[in-house]
Design a protein around this nucleic acid. Sequence first.
DNA 1: AAGTGGTCTAGACCACATG
DNA 2: ATGTGGTCTAGACCACTTC
Lengths: 248, 248
Amino acid sequence: MNLLFSPQRFDDPGAGPLYLQLQRRIAEAIASGRLAPGDSLPAERDMATMTGLSRVTVRKAVQALVLSGQLVQRRGSGTFVAHKVEKLEQALSLLTSFTEDMQRRGRTVESVWLSRAVHSPSPEEVMALGLGADDRAARLARVRRSDGIPLAIERASLSTAFLPDPEVVETSLYGVLEARGLRPTRAVQRISAANLGPRDAELLEVAEGVAGLKIERVSYLPSGQVIEFTRSLYRGDAYDFAVELKLT
Amino acid sequence: MNLLFSPQRFDDPGAGPLYLQLQRRIAEAIASGRLAPGDSLPAERDMATMTGLSRVTVRKAVQALVLSGQLVQRRGSGTFVAHKVEKLEQALSLLTSFTEDMQRRGRTVESVWLSRAVHSPSPEEVMALGLGADDRAARLARVRRSDGIPLAIERASLSTAFLPDPEVVETSLYGVLEARGLRPTRAVQRISAANLGPRDAELLEVAEGVAGLKIERVSYLPSGQVIEFTRSLYRGDAYDFAVELKLT
DNA sequence: AAGTGGTCTAGACCACATG
DNA sequence: ATGTGGTCTAGACCACTTC
């Protein structure tokens, strides 16, 4: 530990900014196992005096490692090497139920509703759902958790023609639709990456700016009509989507 | 503009940290169109005096918006509202050629080799490629660009049994393999999100910490043998992968 | 009560871009 | 030459956790 934070080599010219040098040192210590998951780092002030850097510079190095998921900070408690999160693998080309998926893995499932209500549709919803001037949109938003860890935020929108009362949805939206005789047969998903904003980061219990996987799904009825439009945000560190390719 | 950076309302109690208040203000100005793409913001020092905040605090607000892709900073030049990047949509369940893909869209394609060489395999490569003790790994790394914008970093690994001399690959790896009678028929991709590290961020010409889409692909020969293992890193702001779901 | 991370300040120097 | 963002410092107070 004394070695890790010794002021030596911080005067090297051409080694780049000081915060990057420190960041690299810590990252290497983690990669090599000299810092193991769960280990605590010295307090920021202590690292500063040990390295001869200012606390602001130490913080900048630490922040980058928090963003990349290698460190975790807890206010009032300390800075720790992150535990490896076993990535959950999920097939992308099958529409699977979150609940069944997790139970098959022997994990607990919790789902916290953020809202279930009817709103005037946003322009995005009008586009995606093909709504008319007087149509209204039912919105369902929830946080999906497993074993106490939040994994994803799901925000679904439907025309009230298909779901007049969103309050009736307890667990499975598709279950409720099925009971009403509505069965999507095709869906298209679009996947991209984005840094989480303050709100979403808080809901997923990660630092602001952490990378998240954004998935937008549009589901279609056999008639070709759009029935549902869902935007999900997955924790990038906890999820892994798998796709099998057909090669011609 | 005077309005945007007026010190009013920065004394509101209960509105959260100052940098978040400023961040929110700027984000709203962009969303509402009062700040249009390409517009320049005042210099950091000027924003600081206008708002009555310190430069460090202004920087923290700006940094977050740079991370989320809403602002762009150019050293020596200024801070600007980012131009909307039209997201490139790509089908995930087809193995498409980057070159053909872009040309079909009427875009130029450039590919910059970072390295083409033979190495001792890393543990990861041994695992993925199923290498033996004496096998060596051919590595190909390049940055894919289109219209002058870097879009992705591709790092491919193969056993030298399949590709003894990586230097022969000029544009298409699959083309070279095909010429050698090697034709993958199945591939599995795993997708997740990650914050870009200093090196990768530089190669993709974005700020460190920006969200990237990480795709790992393993391709198989008809015999079931693994022929290739590729790790790609796409700019999260410029790419969008599409998958169609089969619903049973 | 003591220690931790979170926020904030005022001021400084450097490297780079543009006129 | 001037202005810009990039880095860095020393010191301060707050909110929270832990003892």
